[in-house]
Design a protein around this nucleic acid. Structure first.
Length: 537
DNA sequence: CTGGGGACGGGGCCC
DNA sequence: CGGGCCCCGTCCCCA
């Protein structure tokens, strides 16, 4: 029983405590509410007082300003008519942030036709939650056109509402931001564009332009050596080259423009279609090329050859050569080196003529380049389908053609002193001791590059070149400088580097005596400094 | 900022 | 197959 009584007692105490607690909470809340109401009342009263004082201050200011303005008007009336609006100090102060001006003050100044004062002209000024009426004194100008510039100057000099500031700045600056000519020269960051332009649409557009530009800059600035596709050249297995040899000249000429344009696209990455997307000219270019090749079903061919589906724009142009070759493989035999030439490329045309003249000479024992292809096929076929670089190929052909001709003119095969060199190049008549050497040499003319790198699709005419090139990927640098421990992948580079330590400068300019460590430096120097002398000679 | 020059890497090709 | 040379392009430094 005692336990029961104790439990009842505890229960009663708990209930009483709860009631007391609730009562205390209620009383606290009531007190807070009351104090809050009082506080709010005091606040409102203070605000009313503030408004009253403010109006009084405004009235005083108005009076003072009116007195000043009347004095000024009298002076101006004596001097000349006013040329611009003068906004009172009151407004200037607000413009600097002392007041809070928003859209309401857009109608702040109105040009009037009379040089008269208007008192108590009111404008609506947003003061946060509500609006209040501000009395402003304005000196009105009779010349409305003269007003606006002055107003803008007044607004722009203070820290106004950001929105307003943006409204002002989105005039000429935003136009400059959208200017497609200006933008590429000075790519802006996204943030800076946002600051200037203000409106989301402009920001978006500017951003797009900037990114486009960035893409272009990045890709056009990339090292072409790293990507043989740069010049729009196909991957051509030996068999393809073989057919290239029998391409018709008509086709060759028809493709000249397309290839020439392809060289200018500057695209590098086959997986990147930015040039096609961004530059409509490139698109039309590609279509033009297609149309030009309408004689052959080159689309079908390309899809069969490049089944990987990564047929980019360059690939399209690249394939053109091979497709045409396929379709017109039975045409008259004229090597298509000129297919890589733009119209009017005299070097290539000369080469073509040269080639034709050689072909007519049946007395020359030539080694057909076709055999050279066959010899190299095992290497090329082991590689994945890749684009060869006909642009490089083209350059090589031209350079090698020049060299070959120089060699021929300088005594290549015709002046050869050895009767053993009875195997003549069919292009330059240079003599070689064995057919294999002729075949290798003729790649200089044909541009055949049977050795392709599996890492970067670079192709080489000689196996040693490929081997040497692969050090680029492996990073192998077996040659080290004994002076500075610098390492090189090639011995000749080390040799050149050693001149840095030895100070050897064997190449001297015949005009100024300046010496250089490399011949190419001398040549560049003479081109830059003494080209006029050479022209005079 | 610009042009000249040096260092260096890479490709072409002959021997 | 390696040595060697030439050429070109790029990057960097400096006047």
């Amino acid at each position: 029983m005692a336990n029961c009584n104790g439990m009842v007692f505890h229960t009663q105490i708990a209930s009483i405590m709860e009631v007391l607690a609730n009562a205390a909470v209620a009383e606290i809340c009531k007190l807070v509410d009351d104090d809050y109401a009082v506080f709010r009342l005091e606040m409102s009263q203070s605000q009313k007082e503030n408004r009253t004082l403010r109006r009084k201050l405004q009235l005083v200011e108005m009076k003072v300003s009116r007195e000043r303005a009347e004095g000024t008007m009298r002076e101006r009336a004596l001097a000349s008519r006013p040329s611009s609006v003068k906004i009172l100090d009151r407004y200037r102060g607000m413009a600097r942030g002392e007041g809070h001006l928003t859209e309401g003050h857009r109608s702040f100044v109105k040009p009037m036709k009379n040089n008269s004062w208007r008192d108590d002209q009111s404008i609506t000024v947003d003061e946060g939650s509500g609006t209040s009426t501000q009395h402003v004194i304005v000196i009105e100008s009779a010349d409305a056109e003269a007003v606006d510039p002055g107003v803008k100057m007044e607004r722009s000099e203070g820290d106004e509402d950001p929105q307003h500031s943006r409204d002002i700045q989105t005039g000429a600056p935003s136009v400059a931001t959208e200017d497609p000519i200006t933008a590429p020269v000075q790519p802006r960051t996204r943030s800076s564009i946002t600051e200037v332009s203000g409106t989301p649409n402009v920001v978006l557009k500017s951003k797009t332009d900037t990114e486009t530009l960035t893409h272009r800059l990045l890709h056009t600035g990339s090292d072409h050596r790293s990507d043989p596709e740069r010049l729009g050249c196909p991957s051509a297995p030996g068999s393809e080259y073989l057919l290239v040899f029998h391409q018709s000249q008509r086709t060759v000429h028809s493709r000249g423009d397309g290839d020439g344009d392809t060289l200018d696209t500057g695209g590098d990455d086959p997986s990147c279609s930015y040039t096609t997307e961004m530059d409509p000219g490139n698109i039309s270019l590609g279509l033009e090329t297609q149309t030009d090749l309408s004689r052959g079903n080159w689309n079908q061919y390309s899809s069969s050859v490049y089944s990987e589906g990564c047929l980019d724009k360059k690939g399209e142009v690249i394939i053109v050569d091979e497709v045409t070759v396929k379709v017109e493989g039975d045409a008259s035999s004229t090597w298509n080196a000129e297919s890589h030439l733009g119209d009017g490329h005299s070097q290539g045309r000369d080469f073509l003529d040269y080639r034709e003249s050689l072909e007519t000479n049946t007395n020359v024992v030539t080694h057909s380049p076709i055999h050279a292809f066959r010899d190299c096929d095992p290497v090329s076929t082991s590689m994945e389908p890749s684009d060869s670089h006909s642009g490089v190929l083209f350059d090589q052909v031209l350079n090698s053609n020049d060299r070959a001709r120089a060699q021929t003119q300088g005594g290549g095969a015709t002046s050869g002193n050895s009767k053993e060199k009875r195997f003549l190049c069919m292009f330059c008549n240079k003599g070689f001791s064995c057919p294999q050497k002729v075949e290798i040499h003729q790649r200089v003319h044909t541009g055949v590059k049977p050795f392709s790198c599996t890492q970067c699709h670079m192709r080489f005419a000689q196996a040693r070149d490929l081997k040497r090139h692969q050090r680029v990927h492996t990073g192998e640098k077996p040659y080290s400088c004994p002076q500075c421990e610098k390492r090189f992948s090639r011995q000749d580079h080390l040799k050149m580097h050693l001149k840095v330590h030895t100070g050897e400068r064997p190449f001297s300019c015949t005009h100024c005596g300046k010496t250089f460590s490399e011949r190419s430096y001398l040549r560049i120097h003479q081109q830059k400094k003494h080209s006029t002398l050479q022209h005079k000679k």
